[in-house]
Design a protein around this nucleic acid. Structure first.
Ligand SMILES: [Mn+2]
Ligand SMILES: [Mn+2]
Ligand SMILES: [Zn+2]
Ligand SMILES: [Zn+2]
Lengths: 135, 135
DNA sequence: CATACTTTTGTAATGATTTCAATAAACTAA
DNA sequence: TTAGTTTATTGAAATCATTACAAAAGTATG
């Protein structure tokens, strides 16, 4: 909790109780959670927490660069507190999202373009995970 | 229209009037359209067309491998009739999706993995396009 | 034609996200 | 401290893409 507090300050985010709780969850659950997963995980110990606050909070985290929003899952937005260069794999069967760390750093370079100002890259893989493979 | 007909057959898709019309639109409008854009474009000349049919048709096209679904746009699914290896750029301001063709072929290789069976890759870039840059 | 099978259609349900106004909390200046 | 001001949180309602479903239309087969 105090660490989350510190962590938020590094991104110049004012650490409210709710924001610290959300960041604490993200730092300790590297599962690329959805808004609902975050809300469900926190609401037992924070009964007054509103889902709108979770939306607001994640929007703020993304805006401040503390968290990255992933588009890999068409059903729900997913959030990643690990902002280092890495890719993701989603199992089309169970929906879990995993990190793919062993990719060439060059893959995350921004290509030259006259036409666009490119701000970010997302590298996504789809398929079946080990436990869903035999399905 | 006849070409779309032929094209569908190559993917063993029975070419109904609606399916041919959708494929014709995709082949001639390489804009990575949303379901709604396809529906809006076709309904004037096909007044009985149902949006459900557009959904069904695109699901079928994707299942048969004739079209690729893109996750780059969190708001709507987007569809690409170009199934060759290439990346995409979306302007966060105007929402338009453009092709990025000049990427190393190696970037589209499937990484080795003990844990997953990877079926597809998506490489996405976000930023601002030329006409939105000054915003 | 008659039957079975496939496709299309319209409506209703679902569910994630957004909007918005009211309340609560944090901050500032006197 | 207190009053006034700004910021954050909350809950309810609205929006909107997508899905589910059953009826109607179309197609193929004998
Ligand atoms: Mn990650
Ligand atoms: Mn494309
Ligand atoms: Zn799985
Ligand atoms: Zn633009």
């Amino acid at each position: 909790m105090l660490e989350s507090h510190q962590y938020l300050r590094q991104f110049s985010i004012k650490p409210s109780v709710q924001r610290s709780a959300v960041m604490h969850f993200l730092l300790n659950n590297r599962i690329h959670p959805t808004i609902d997963e975050i809300y469900m995980a926190l609401s037992p110990t924070m009964p007054t927490l509103s889902k709108t606050t979770v939306y607001n909070t994640l929007d703020l985290f993304v805006e401040k660069g503390a968290v990255r929003a992933l588009a890999i899952d068409e059903k729900n937005a997913r959030y990643d507190v690990d902002i280092s260069a890495h890719g993701h794999f989603m199992c089309k069967s169970c929906g879990k999202v995993h990190d793919i760390f062993d990719l060439k750093p060059s893959m995350f370079q921004i290509p030259e373009s006259e036409s666009f100002r490119i701000d970010s890259v997302e590298i996504s893989y789809l398929g079946a995970c080990k436990s869903c493979k035999g399905n």
